[in-house]
């Protein structure tokens, strides 16, 4: 599992797409933190909000574009290998669960490093490392990575997951906010399956997002075990 994790992690750093995304992430973190005092002076904020103002830029990017970023890099993490038959070399050496969780872990560590560096950049200005918001952000990325892996297992063509990934990446934040704030019962129930509802609160309910990610990975594992390569 760790061999696959390491390979996935390194290969994510090698693509042009990932370099662009990392650059966006770092730029947003840096400038949002740098100019957060300007933002704070223009708006009335509570003491807690004022404290979190430095991380708002990064959190907004992850909330609104995170799914798009994760899908952009990892929409074909499983189906590309199945499609191109390189998966045959993997399944004859490692268990399917080890492949699946190894790939997931590789994606997760990649985002962990990117976000940790972004938070460190922010901490230059805020003079503190906000572990709570960092954990919330990581829970969100965990969900997004698990969803990308699940779709990559369910849909066999990389072209389809790329298309669906882009649609979902744009739609999911909108759907998330709609589900959270809409009184409509037909829409409202969805909030329990989308992470935004759990990020609203300043407590540890964001851990539910990790449970949702775990369920998606278990579903992906169950499907992948039966899948022909």
């Amino acid at each position: 599992m760790f061999v696959i994790c390491k390979r996935e992690f390194i290969s994510l750093f090698k693509s042009i797409k990932s370099i662009i995304m990392i650059a966006i992430l770092f730029a947003v973190s840096y400038y949002a933190a740098k100019f957060s005092s300007l933002l704070a002076s223009g708006v009335e904020l509570t003491a807690g909000e004022a404290e979190d103002i430095h991380t708002i830029g990064l959190l907004s990017v992850i909330l609104l574009l995170g799914q798009l970023f994760v899908f952009g890099l990892s929409h074909d993490t499983i189906n590309r290998e199945t499609h191109e038959r390189t998966m045959r070399f993997l399944v004859t050496r490692a268990s399917r669960s080890a492949i699946l969780f190894g790939k997931f872990l590789g994606i997760w560590v990649f985002w962990f490093v990117c976000i940790a560096v972004s938070f460190l950049l922010i901490s230059i200005f805020s003079k503190k490392f906000d572990l709570f918001i960092f954990s919330q952000t990581m829970s969100l990325v965990t969900y997004q990575a698990a969803l990308a892996v699940l779709l990559s297992v369910l849909i066999s063509r990389p072209g389809y997951t790329m298309f669906l990934g882009n649609i979902l990446g744009l739609l999911l934040p909108a759907l998330g906010f709609w589900a959270v704030f809409s009184p409509n019962g037909w829409v409202n129930w969805m909030k329990f399956f989308i992470p935004f509802y759990y990020l609203e609160r300043d407590d540890f309910t964001f851990l539910v997002i990790l449970a949702l990610a775990g369920l998606m990975m278990l579903a992906a594992d169950a499907v992948f075990r039966r899948r022909e390569c």
Partner: peptide, 14 residues
């Protein structure tokens, strides 16, 4: 499977 070597019918590499 670690004690087994496999060359599948269609070999595609990275």
């Amino acid at each position: 499977m670690k004690r087994v070597g496999v060359m599948p019918d269609y070999s595609s590499f990275y």
